[in-house]
Design a protein around this nucleic acid. Structure first.
Length: 722
DNA sequence: AAGGCAAATGTTTTT
DNA sequence: CATTTGCCTT
């Protein structure tokens, strides 16, 4: 392949980036501006033109999905997979390093990865040993504290001794938590990064080895890197390895998880010989959609500044629908999707995006009723399901009896008469003797330290695990899993569960066996099981099994980042929902919500619907939210309001009754449910509800600025609009 | 030790 | 509203 094949499909800014001769490169890539394409073509350029071996390239992404996509697209372009090239997530690469250099990293060879669930359990155990009151300091707060510190690259010993009780308690927990991890050879997600950083810090010759090996390092979604990830990159780069960072400050939506947009700002300061390239031409959305997105994001103060433009025509106007309530909203959406497919489009080209997962239920119901196939992304991941984690815990015990997290999880699952008290006893013994729970259990049985019944039960559990391992180690992975799931009693345990929840859990366990069958170990020489377990911990398994069927896509705005759809429906465009009520107070968090709105709008290629509900059931009670400020930020000229309710008679009985009563109550008020009205004090609003008649008639109006109010019809001078 | 009922508690998500 | 947690009874 020659240079033209790499550069021809690119615009001039993209070409500048791909063929850059500068030492370091910062690409500010707006939404839909060909970010991944530039990365992939840059890699092709380095290999084909600069003659750099794939072995000397390192490409870091944020998600496993992005890593897979990059691999696939490199293969597409080059015609072969970049053999020997390191492509992976920060965590995946850190894990790889630690596996290779476990001794230098001060870890046991078979160190265990703790996911957030394991981590929370460990935190709870630390509370118990320290005697900390969890009603005063919630577990999750401590977990959040620990992760936030690790994101910043701080260990407990790095923290300033503090006076205030919150800091003191958290630091105490953090210290004990670190000790517990160290003792058990356990490594949480943050620890992977922290350790990988320290590994190089403490082993300069190892760092040098990698600095010589990697002749180019490329980073995707740079706006999502946190402090420790950037520190790790900087250490690797030193003053010799060229870095290429690609990101978009306007799409930084993970600040709440430690991501630092500032890293983008600091990059050119930290590396003065950086060429900055802006990709501002958008190839994805119609002009109307892009103008709307620009209008929304321009209200943010804290930006690097970038204006996306397009050669495309205006396209269709953005449609806004004011629903009566969330059911009406869902019904409207289902109708639009029906229109979409009846016009000959594919369902999978349409996506419904929402701020929070809780919104999906009503939408699902409406789609189900309308017979529209759909697929939901997000929610619970496969490897995070209870039943799967239980099965994995048994498998983990086979590999490593001293895995306390796994031991605790399944010692009494299915229930076998080992209750809290017994486990508590084992924990104390383990702590006193400085041994794992497994060894403590052995000791307790051998030396009859437990009451008879409990002792028998514990002995039974120990025997079960040993027995599970017998004659199984040499078998293929899937058969090991099958054997363990059946013999541990997990299948029966879930089969006995009431409702159809148990049924789906049994199916999931079967699915796990299938996953084992399809698993290809990275290192064929080593046993497959430990490799499978590591992969399960690092990749939550969000790949969709039934990707073949044509279905509408439902997902949160967060998980929509990086995707695009011809038709996008943003549902729940309401204050308190989006922007979320937790984020409206703080300007910084509000800016992040706004970036989320920007991400949402820019997912749309041809047609964008915005919907909101005048009234919505939230946490069991009715709430009345004004239309989202993000909708108001969009110039009116770009929006076409759909006003079905004034023309269409709602067939449902509850909606008709008040309409009839309203006109029956003496003079025709000209009001109906969903009617837009204006009041001389409260301004504009929408009629939500109605009660009584004649002089006592009252209407409930949701005012745009004042919220919902009940007004006596004969006093309030309401003027109908439209 | 296990199961049932009342009370509390609700973002976003990856690794 | 729906799910999870904690207390209380068998």
């Amino acid at each position: 392949m020659d240079v033209t094949a790499i550069l021809d499909p690119l615009n001039s800014a993209q070409r500048d980036a791909v063929s850059s001769q500068a030492k370091h490169l910062l690409v500010l890539a707006g939404a839909g501006s060909g970010k991944t394409r530039v990365l992939v073509h840059r890699i092709a350029w380095l290999i084909q033109v600069e003659q750099i071996s794939p072995y000397s390239l390192l490409a870091v992404t944020f998600t496993n999905k992005a890593a897979r996509e990059m691999r696939a697209r490199i293969e597409d372009l080059l015609g072969y997979s970049g053999q020997g090239m390191w492509v992976g997530t920060f965590h995946g690469i850190a894990h790889r390093l630690l596996k290779m250099h476990w001794q230098q990293a001060g870890l046991p060879e078979n160190f265990q990865i703790l996911d957030s669930d394991d981590q929370l359990r460990l935190v709870k155990r630390v509370y118990q040993t320290l005697g900390i009151d969890d009603s005063r300091w919630p577990y999750r707060q401590a977990q959040g504290f620990i992760n936030a510190q690790k994101d910043e690259g701080l260990r407990a010993r790095h923290l300033q001794p503090a006076q205030d009780p919150y800091q003191r308690t958290m630091q105490q927990i953090y210290t004990a938590y670190e000790e517990a991890c160290e003792r058990g050879g356990m490594v949480d997600f943050g620890e992977l990064l922290l350790r990988a950083h320290e590994l190089w810090l403490q082993q300069p010759e190892l760092l040098q080895h990698y600095q010589q090996r990697f002749r180019h390092v490329l980073v995707d979604e740079f706006q999502d890197t946190n402090a420790i990830q950037y520190a790790w990159l900087r250490m690797l780069a030193g003053n010799q390895v060229p870095l290429m960072a690609v990101g978009d400050d306007d799409q930084s939506i993970y600040g709440w998880r430690g991501a630092k947009v500032e890293n983008i700002l600091n990059f050119s300061r930290d590396y003065p010989d950086t060429q900055t390239v802006r990709l501002e031409q958008n190839y994805r959305s119609s002009k109307n959609i892009l103008d709307a997105a620009n209008a929304v994001i321009s209200r943010n103060v804290d930006r690097l500044g970038k204006n996306l433009w397009t050669d495309d025509p205006d396209g269709e106007p953005i449609a806004l629908y004011a629903a009566f309530n969330e059911h009406d909203e869902a019904r409207f959406i289902a109708d639009r999707l029906q229109d979409w497919t009846s016009q000959g489009n594919l369902r999978e080209e349409a996506a419904i995006l929402y701020r929070s997962n809780a919104q999906s239920r009503v939408l699902e119901e409406a789609l189900l009723r309308a017979g529209i196939p759909y697929r939901i992304y997000g929610g619970q991941k496969f490897y995070e399901r209870q039943e799967i984690r239980n099965a994995l815990a048994y498998l983990r015990l086979l590999v490593n009896r001293n895995d306390d997290a796994a031991f605790e999880r399944v010692v009494n699952t299915p229930t076998r008469g080992i209750g809290d008290k017994t486990v508590q006893g084992l924990r104390e013994l383990a702590r006193d003797e400085g041994m794992s729970l497994w060894r403590a259990a052995q000791k307790a049985v051998d030396e009859s330290l437990l009451p008879g019944r409990a002792s028998n039960a514990v002995a039974g559990f120990l025997a079960l695990i040993d027995e599970l391992e017998e004659g199984v180690v040499e078998l293929p992975l899937a058969e090991i899993a099958d054997h363990v799931i059946a013999r541990s009693g997990l299948i029966d345990f879930h089969r006995r569960e009431k409702g159809d929840r148990g049924e789906s859990r049994v199916e999931n366990l079967q699915e796990l066996i299938t996953a084992c069958r399809g698993f290809e170990p990275e290192d064929k020489a080593l046993s497959a099981l430990p490799q499978f377990l590591d992969q399960a911990a690092l990749d939550a398994g969000d790949r969709q099994a039934d990707a073949g069927a044509d279905a509408v896509q439902l997902m949160t705005l967060h998980s929509a980042k990086g995707l695009e759809f011809p038709l996008v429906i943003l549902a729940g465009m309401e204050e308190n929902l989006f922007p979320h009520r937790m984020s409206v107070e703080e300007p910084g968090r509000l800016e992040e919500e706004r970036r989320l709105a920007y991400v949402g709008i820019t997912r749309a290629m041809q047609k964008l619907y915005l919907t909101f509900a005048e009234s919505r059931q939230q946490y069991g009670s009715e709430s009345y939210n004004a239309v989202s400020r993000f909708v108001r930020d969009i110039p009116a000229g770009l929006i076409e309001e759909v006003r079905l309710r004034t023309h269409v008679q709602r067939p449902t009985s509850y909606a008709q009754k008040p309409t009839v009563s309203l006109s029956d109550s003496g003079a025709d008020t000209g009001l109906s449910l969903g009617q837009r009205v204006t009041h001389h004090v409260f301004g504009e609003g929408v009629v939500l509800n109605f009660e009584g008649n004649g002089a006592h008639a009252r209407v409930q109006v949701n005012f745009d600025n004042e919220g919902s109010k009940w007004l006596v019809l004969s006093y309030a001078k309401l003027t109908p609009l439209c």
